[in-house]
Design a binder for these strands. Structure first.
Lengths: 110, 110
DNA sequence: ACACATGGTAAGCATACACTTACTGTAAGC
DNA sequence: GCTTACAGTAAGTGTATGCTTACCATGTGT
């Protein structure tokens, strides 16, 4: 399924931005409202909204309406997409790397 | 060694670019010279060089001089950095998600 | 119903960055 | 030694995008 890389690409691009990553990591502590996220962050509230929209489009977060607040939480779907892609890459990397293992031995714990 | 997230950030940013990802994925087939990579790609040779430099800085590829050719191969180090970061995120995501598992069960794959 | 709070959207700006065409350096082949 | 091939670097350009301020929509509490 070559179409599997597409969501991974979106998720990768989404997490490439430092602010977005920071936002995402903050959601690890649990669901948060937009204002709550903007309060402790370094950028304005609209910026947070835009970033959350990108993360949502990438399947990395999920939003729930709670009155006038909008609560965002981590959605494992996007993370799973990245993980699948990474595992695929990892296989190829090992295949390629196994031939070099004997001659190259940088700091690497077994 | 507490700056483990930094390499992950670089690697994430490097792989966020489609061309760079394409380049990286092409290296799964094995080590390739720059001209070889540019030959089948969509961008010019200098662009490939620049992208390879970024990938190298991110610890994702490794280069070896072979006469006038410069052969690039996948370096698992960058991939490992991403994987470590991902695993960390995954733990948090699961922790957050476990409470929601029962009520959420949508899949709109077709 | 009115006022306040919360958050998404619009428009605009400023920087970053992916790509190109030249140029330079270096190693192989004659 | 000279020419040819291969690759990295410089300089410049166009577009994408992250951020801001202003505005609009929705929901809640009195």
């Amino acid at each position: 399924m070559s179409k599997k890389s597409a969501p991974a690409a979106t998720a990768l691009a989404a997490l490439a931005d430092p602010t977005r990553r920071q936002l995402f990591e903050r959601l690890r502590s649990g669901p948060r409202a937009v204002g709550e996220l903007a309060r402790g962050g370094t950028v304005s509230r609209p910026a947070v909204s835009q970033h959350l929209a990108v993360l949502k489009a990438a399947g990395l977060v999920r939003d729930t309406a709670a009155g006038t607040r909008r609560v965002y939480e981590i959605d494992p779907k996007g993370l799973a997409a990245i993980r699948a892609w990474l595992d695929d890459m990892w296989g190829g990397a090992l295949q390629n790397f196994s031939a070099e293992l004997e001659k190259d031995n940088d700091e690497r714990e077994s």
